[in-house]
Design a protein around this nucleic acid. Sequence first.
DNA 1: TCGATTGCAAGAGCGGCGCTCACATTTGTC
DNA 2: GACAAATGTGAGCGCCGCTCTTGCAATCGA
Lengths: 228, 228
Amino acid sequence: MRRMSERRTPRQIAREETLVRIKTIALAQLAAEGAPGLSLRAIARELEVVSSAVYRYFSGRDELLTALIVDAYGDLAARLEAAGSGRGSARARWTATCDGLRAWAVAEPHRFALVYGSAIPGYRAPATTIEPAARVVRAFAAAVPPSARRAANDDHAVSRTLAPQLAGTAEVLDLDLEPPVVLWLVGAFARVLGALTLELNGHLVGGFEPADDLFEALVAAEAAALAW
Amino acid sequence: MRRMSERRTPRQIAREETLVRIKTIALAQLAAEGAPGLSLRAIARELEVVSSAVYRYFSGRDELLTALIVDAYGDLAARLEAAGSGRGSARARWTATCDGLRAWAVAEPHRFALVYGSAIPGYRAPATTIEPAARVVRAFAAAVPPSARRAANDDHAVSRTLAPQLAGTAEVLDLDLEPPVVLWLVGAFARVLGALTLELNGHLVGGFEPADDLFEALVAAEAAALAW
DNA sequence: TCGATTGCAAGAGCGGCGCTCACATTTGTC
DNA sequence: GACAAATGTGAGCGCCGCTCTTGCAATCGA
């Protein structure tokens, strides 16, 4: 047992720098080739190191992907928290949060795909990614005041079996929101993600380009269903 | 110039059968390993043929993927058309269409990911896939009567720049719907896709399992915004 | 019916991949 | 300075997509 972080030895410094360098190169590869094109050998080449050396830093592709996913959630959450922390109305902060997500997704579509795209086959997300993912959702929830109520269809919208699921989710995420509002939140989040999925994967080409106006209208329409 | 399809020679028959066999094996691989795990070599092995032989049937991985995508769109569209062709109310047919999409996606998540998941890096969808994809959207639109109007926020929901995009999309897809309804349609479709993306990629684990009630409530809430 | 054509499969091979392992080298500690 | 841990090397395994040449057999035209 040696003091572990009291004094960082040059080796530790170098190690951390190498970790960052690897992730940086990986992100560049991701942007250029997508997740399947992420190659440890190519990273090693760019690092001017033999391929097996990379395994001293990440035990394999999956571990590297996990690190990138955690980073992506973290960066996104920070960005959303900043976007939604304005002094305007709750509704304005909500809109700003949605716009923040889109701006991030459009700017870094590969990272968006990494966290909200199709599961990478053969890759099983470890529990480490749960908390960072929850932080993103919490950023959205933060813009919705606890006093918000659904404008209509309050009663029959939430079935007896769904209510406890909504309440449980709110508790896990530490949200002070009533079940109907949680339902609205999930729906709104799904809608935003779906719209971005469509946009980023080219399903809107030919009709909505750029999709700014479409996105804005969709967010506005969704927000109209909530009594702020 | 010989008659090409008048009389199928044994050779043509064998070829077509091989094409189907390859696609069948590919689908099995897709289900087992996902898109990146789709390997022409493995297909050749299962086909008990040398790997290069497969290239007689598909010029490469991309061409095979394209065939699978077109098939997937076709199967899905047929299923949705069947689901939405009941004799109930338009709203009931709409719900049935949404449920049909979810049922298909849950039953064949790998095919859902193929068409609505993250774009496969390095793969550029050829124009061949546009029409099949449009057919799916049309299946959804078919459940929305032209008489439908948005219940509220009709005016400010559709901006001046968005309206022509919506009208253009309606025209391309041959939909007899007013811009506000097209906007609703796109939003509803995005919401359903987003919800399925969340569900299939495990973003709902821990809170909504099974997600049947959630999905039902989301569809119902969306439908409430339209005057049927 | 027979020779030429065409379609198909085999097999070898290229470069790339993830990953492992035995070995050498460097670095930090006592 | 000795020793151990951390780091880098290089060879190698089996996989991948894809290409090319070669042999063979079904098919077609005369």
